[in-house]
Simulated scan of single mutants.
Amino acid sequence: MSQSLKIDAHQHFWKYDPLKHAWIDDSMSVLKRDFLPNNLKPVLEKSNLDGCIAVQADQSDEETKFLLDLAQDNSIIKGVVGWVDLQSPQLESKLEKFSSQPLLKGFRHVLQDEADDEFILRSDFIRGLELLSKFDFTYDILIFPKQLAAAKEAVSQLPKQAFVLDHIAKPAIGGKVTDTWKKGIHQLAQYENVSCKISGMVTEAKWDEWKYEDFIPYLDFVLEQFGADRLMYGSDWPVCTLSGKYHEVFGLVNQYISTLSSSEQASIMGENAVKFYKIN
């Protein structure tokens, strides 16, 4: 597979279920329907993107199977980030079974919803993360800025594990860039095994009221800290549609990287995702 693939490194699919998707409240009614590959494919094509990484939205074994089934039947899905109970005593045998699935690239846990800001540092969770590297699986870190310090501490213990930070850690966009976020990003970026997705930003801004300039200080900082070789474009579709159309989300990142070299642009728009998720 060509290294010049253009990839949306972060999006979701679901068959809407009010119980399973209870996080979709009334303010997000636009998301209360099915979002499947046939909905995304024309959207990707309009932006000249070759495919996507499908990321879990529900914390269940069924979710991982659902995404893998979709990936088997839809060539736009280049890889799946599923969910597994990282604290399970049976984790190793589960990962061994999963390792026979070439489209399953890694896992994610919704750490942002955990009441304990240091959940990632629990000994059985760390043990689970450690097992991922044994089977060559990646891990997506989904957190808020207040959880960055704990994430950095976890990463420091796991030099062999490939990590990617989702949504630049979800800072509140539009106001002042906080020291908590900057310090946390700086510390995490010191670890070469951590990449960062420039994704999910529009939903952290004022929905439908943001302007391009709101994102520049954040994009400047993550580019400075991670460099173009550890950043990946992601849309967070369909969640991003709460605050903007797909072409606007894509256009925001595309406009920002337009001053970079063509090789840096190619890295951010796909090559880094191809390498990180071992797309072949």
Rank of each mutant, 00 (worst) to 15 (best):
D117V: 12
E118T: 15
Q90V: 07
Q112M: 13
Q101Y: 12
D113K: 08
Q87V: 01
Q87Y: 00
P102K: 07
Q101V: 05
K97R: 09
S99E: 00
Q87I: 06
L86P: 02
E118L: 11
S93E: 12
Q87F: 02
S99M: 03
F98N: 05
S99R: 06
L95F: 04
S88T: 13
S99D: 00
H109Y: 13
L95R: 00
R108P: 06
F98D: 04
K105N: 07
A115C: 07
A115L: 15
V110T: 15
E92C: 04
P89F: 04
E114I: 13
L103P: 02
A115E: 14
P102E: 08
E96R: 09
K97E: 05
D85N: 15
L91A: 04
H109V: 13
S100W: 01
K94W: 03
P89H: 08
H109P: 02
G106A: 06
L104G: 01
L91H: 02
H109I: 06
Q112I: 10
Q112F: 10
A115R: 14
F98L: 09
H109K: 11
V84K: 00
V110I: 14
S100L: 09
S88R: 07
S100D: 07
V110P: 11
S100H: 15
W83A: 04
H109E: 11
F119P: 01
Q101D: 09
S93W: 04
P89G: 03
A115Q: 15
F98I: 02
Q90T: 13
L111N: 06
S88I: 08
V110F: 13
K94P: 00
S88E: 05
V84L: 01
F98V: 02
K94G: 00
D85S: 10
P102L: 03
G106T: 08
Q112T: 12
R108W: 08
L95D: 01
E118D: 15
E92W: 00
S93I: 15
L103G: 05
A115T: 15
Q90L: 10
Q90D: 13
K97F: 04
L111A: 10
D113A: 11
Q87S: 15
L91G: 01
V110Y: 06
L104A: 10
V84S: 04
D116T: 12
V84G: 00
W83N: 01
F107L: 10
P89D: 11
S93G: 00
K105C: 05
